[in-house]
């Protein structure tokens, strides 16, 4: 068992290393043209002291958007899910509303938001809408997972609607909510970046698009790499949380 596990860990490590080596080799020998820099060039560019303030400012702006969007989206999604769980008649309408808002391509939402709010408020809002959708869907289905037997038990014990929700439905929904925490991480980043593509004044998304248009290849790859690594780290953290919750709830 343990040997199979360590074996798959080693294989995974080799896989990731091969990927990074391929990135380096393709860049060094220009197998994919001039617009594919070797990994070492990107890393060197990233760690140039002169560039640090640039990346720092951009990352701070984007990560703030991600954090605000994530928190507001998570709270909003959970509150709406609770509302549709407690007040049955509003459920179909909320379901449709959430689905329709989710279906609007963020590209279409962005200009509306720029008018309604402001250019700098757009990234966190798009991010929050995406995150809210995931939380709403996961929480509504999670709140409905408690078994019929448990429900009967609570009914026989004369529990109020409120205490059923608090003591039965919410705990049963925790694993689904923990999954939503993990799955909405890349969504939060995508929302913030796309929001910035529509005229934010700073942020990694802006950096990415201007680097693309001006052929600043190492800058382009560096900005994307920062975004990817940040998302990956947050995803890993929440995967751990998810595992803890699922083990506790089993």
């Amino acid at each position: 068992m343990t040997s199979a596990r360590s074996q798959s860990f080693v294989l995974g490590l080799i896989g990731v290393s091969l990927f990074l080596i391929a990135w380096e080799v393709i860049g060094t020998y220009r197998l994919a043209g001039l617009t594919w820099p070797p990994l070492s060039t990107v890393l060197a560019f990233l760690t140039t002291p002169a560039k640090l303030p640039l990346f720092g400012r951009a990352a701070a702006a984007s990560f703030t958007s991600v954090a605000i969007g994530y928190l507001c989206g998570a709270c909003g999604g959970l509150i709406l899910a609770l509302a549709s769980h407690l007040i049955a008649p509003v459920r179909p309408g909320l379901d449709r509303l959430v689905a329709v808002i989710h279906a609007i391509p963020s590209i279409a939402l962005a200009p509306l938001l720029i008018v309604l709010a402001s250019a700098d408020a757009t990234p966190p809002i798009i991010s929050g809408l995406g995150v809210g959708y995931i939380f709403y869907v996961a929480a509504t289905s999670g709140l409905a997972t408690a078994s019929a037997t448990h429900r009967d038990l609570f009914a026989v014990l004369g529990a109020s609607r409120f205490s059923v929700t608090l003591r039965l439905d919410l705990p049963s929904a925790l694993p689904a909510i923990a999954s939503a925490m993990k799955l909405s991480v890349p969504i939060a980043f995508i929302g913030a970046i796309i929001g910035e593509w529509f005229g934010a004044s700073r942020g990694l998304g802006l950096l990415i698009v201007s680097a693309m248009q001006n052929f600043q290849i190492p800058l382009l790859w560096s900005a994307v790499l920062i975004t990817a690594v940040a998302s990956l780290a947050m995803f890993a953290l929440f995967s751990l949380t998810e595992r803890l919750v699922q083990e506790r709830m089993r």
Binding site: P186, I208, M212, V224, L232
Partner: peptide, 16 residues
């Protein structure tokens, strides 16, 4: 790759 925002790769692919 499922845990990173793949959409941010669009500009890279566009350049490539």
């Amino acid at each position: 790759f499922t845990s990173i925002p793949v959409v941010t790769l669009i500009p890279i692919i566009a350049r490539l």
